[in-house]
């Protein structure tokens, strides 16, 4: 397997000299490579058509907030080689634009819709309805690390009338009925 992993990287590096970083010292069947974003469709096409990496396993994105980057990761799998290839690229967090790849695998369309909605990454040429999971969303894309969930919840939702103080319901019942809250339950009261 180690040989095969090295061969794959060698072959890819010959065709794509732009590959900036590779990693194949994993103790399992995995090869990593990093390439600039405008070469992504080309390398994925090559992997699929020339090298038999027909199965698109996953497309995902990691938000490296401190470094100001999004890392988009494409995982492809070959049923013949039985190796996972991770194609990674960095996007500028302030201007996350990259090429659409749904002409290579049409299910990529779904992944791209999700990344567009959850991270705000724009895929050029992506044809899909604007909304996927979220409805009428006008805030920052919610999976970004700097999205403040608590502030959003406070802005968006409100307490039921009479429950603004978030008081323990057992307290209210105890006052109304005149019964004592048992000791074991006090432990769980706010």
């Amino acid at each position: 397997m180690e040989e095969k992993k090295a061969q794959i990287l060698e072959k890819l590096q010959k065709v794509f000299p732009e590959i900036s970083e590779t990693k194949n010292d994993f103790p399992y069947n995995r090869v990593d490579l990093r390439i600039e974003k405008n070469k992504i469709p080309a390398i994925l096409f090559y992997l699929k058509d020339e090298m038999g990496y027909k199965h698109l396993v996953h497309i995902t994105c990691v938000d490296w907030l401190e470094e100001g980057k999004f890392e988009v990761i494409f995982i492809v799998w070959s049923p013949v080689d039985k190796i996972k290839v991770f194609v990674k690229t960095f996007l500028d967090r302030n201007n996350p634009v990259m090429d659409n790849v749904d002409m290579i695998w049409r299910q990529a369309n779904t992944y791209e819709r999700e990344l567009r909605e959850m991270f705000g990454i724009q895929f050029e040429g992506l044809v899909a309805p604007k909304e996927f999971i979220l409805e009428d969303w006008d805030d920052m894309p919610p999976m970004r690390r700097d999205f403040d969930t608590e502030a959003y919840a406070r802005k968006r939702f409100f307490a039921r009338p009479g429950r603004e103080d978030a008081r323990d319901v057992r307290q209210t019942i105890a006052e109304r009925t005149g019964e004592e809250i048992p000791d074991f339950a006090k432990k769980y009261s706010r």
Binding site: H58, T60, Q107
Partner: peptide, 28 residues
């Protein structure tokens, strides 16, 4: 499938699940 990314802390930086239905129930 499960993708997890760590930044070296005690919490995940990112987790992302791949479900079969994600492809089966939409594009397929």
């Amino acid at each position: 499938g499960f993708f997890v990314a760590s930044d070296g802390s005690n919490k995940p930086r990112r987790t992302h699940m791949r479900g079969a239905a994600y492809v089966h129930a939409i594009t397929l």
